[in-house]
């Protein structure tokens, strides 16, 4: 689905990504671990073309996204991203937040889009909240709506950028449960996260970014139980144990 080849990204003089190479298969869930500042968010934003990479290549369904003929708006309709800070549109109610993209980016008919959005809201357990505004929802509910907003575009891949990091600990569970459901339904996802237990339970593969380098990519069980790289062993020794 997505192939990253030797991706380099610099901000001014500071190199944030040092030659990252990673492949994401269709229906695969990959969790991206790493300390704050290791480059997880930047990597996701590069895939979504919210940032331009300096070197390397990103191949999406066989096409290079660095081709100068690429229309970034069209790419983003296929690659959804959800942010740590939700970024819902405060002036639109829940339903309108979800339908804005399908209506105004894809130009689909309203009745069709709205019935899909209501079904989506039912799936995330917010079927009764379609007329509420974002500031009437809890953080966990807002983040679920943000995920639904991305899903409403029916993207091929969903990128999730530390979507539980801004949440009250008691609200983290409901968002992770939603992601688990999506994984079971076969949604292709690349998830930057600090939730180790979730990565172990849900991810097919887990990757560790350390100072902009991808030091280890392995099936979840192997990554946690039998890591091969010293950086991984060090990283896992610094976070709470998981079973």
């Amino acid at each position: 689905m997505i192939e990253l080849h030797n991706v380099h990204k610099q901000f001014d003089q500071r190199t944030v990504l040092h030659g990252v190479t990673l492949e994401l298969q269709a229906h695969e869930v990959v969790c991206l671990l790493g300390s704050s500042g290791s480059g997880k968010s930047t990597l996701l934003r590069c895939i979504n073309l919210l940032e331009r990479i300096e070197q390397g290549d990103i191949i999406f369904r066989g096409q290079s996204l660095l081709d100068e003929r690429i229309d970034v708006d069209l790419v983003r309709r296929h690659i959804g991203i959800v942010f740590q800070a939700f970024n819902l549109f405060p002036h639109l109610n829940v339903l309108d937040n979800i339908t804005l993209g399908p209506l105004r980016a894809l130009g689909r008919p309203r009745n069709e889009v709205e019935s899909e959005a209501r079904e989506l809201l039912g799936r995330i357990g917010l079927g009764t909240r379609s007329d509420d505004y974002p500031d009437q929802l809890s953080g966990g509910q807002q983040q679920r709506v943000a995920i639904a907003r991305a899903l409403a575009m029916q993207p091929d891949v969903l990128l999730l950028d530390e979507v539980t990091s801004a949440l009250d600990p008691t609200l983290v569970g409901e968002v992770l449960d939603l992601l688990s459901d999506l994984a079971i339904q076969g949604t292709t996802m690349l998830i930057a996260t600090h939730e180790m237990q979730f990565a172990r339970d849900v991810a097919h593969r887990v990757a560790l970014l350390d100072a902009g380098r991808l030091v280890e990519v392995a099936p979840a069980k192997q990554f946690f139980d039998n890591p091969s790289q010293p950086e991984t062993i060090d990283f896992l020794s610094r976070v709470p144990k998981t079973q």
């Binding site: 919210l50 959804g80 991203i81 942010f83 800070a85 970024n87």
Partner: peptide
């Protein structure tokens, strides 16, 4: 700015 980013991230054009 995060509103702009969020709008562009769902593929809205600049005008929209």
């Amino acid at each position: 700015t995060n509103q702009l980013v969020a709008a562009r991230a769902i593929g809205l054009r600049q005008g929209a």
